[in-house]
Amino acid sequence: MQSKNMVFSILNNKINDYNHSSYRKPLVNGDDNIFEKLFDENNKWKAGERPQIWPEDTGNLLDNDDFRNVWHHCMSKLHANWFSAIQLKFIEEKNDEHICQELGITDTNFLQILHRAKLQLRKCVELNWLNK
């Protein structure tokens, strides 16, 4: 029994190590092109990408099953590193310094990750929820 537990705890640590190592390659520059998608050469919103006004009452969105499905879908579309940063900040409510340490990124990278993640989330919600 004890050896079984030991094997599980070793495997668990391995998985954690793997997760952490994948966080440590933050996609901040290069690989993603969200800015190119959203902004034109003058850094203005492209015509089809400009945020539209959302309906006033967004207070109880998470009570709505359809919205929750959209939200879940949009969260799952985030790059793993972006998702980790968001999860640590909002769900585990860790402080920013701790998050940077955990993910092995600088605070500038962290800001960029949060910013990009939110741009993408916003676009995804608007596309799948409000434009339905």
């Binding site: 400009r50 006004i53 998470l62 929750r68 939200w71 879940h72 968001i86 769900i91």
Partner: peptide, 24 residues
């Protein structure tokens, strides 16, 4: 566009804070 983003960024923060990671 940016005025709308200003409001939506706030809404996203609220949603992110309120959610416990929602699964289907």
């Amino acid at each position: 566009g940016c005025n709308a983003y200003l409001k939506q960024s706030k809404i996203l923060d609220d949603l992110l804070l309120k959610q416990t990671y929602i699964t289907n």
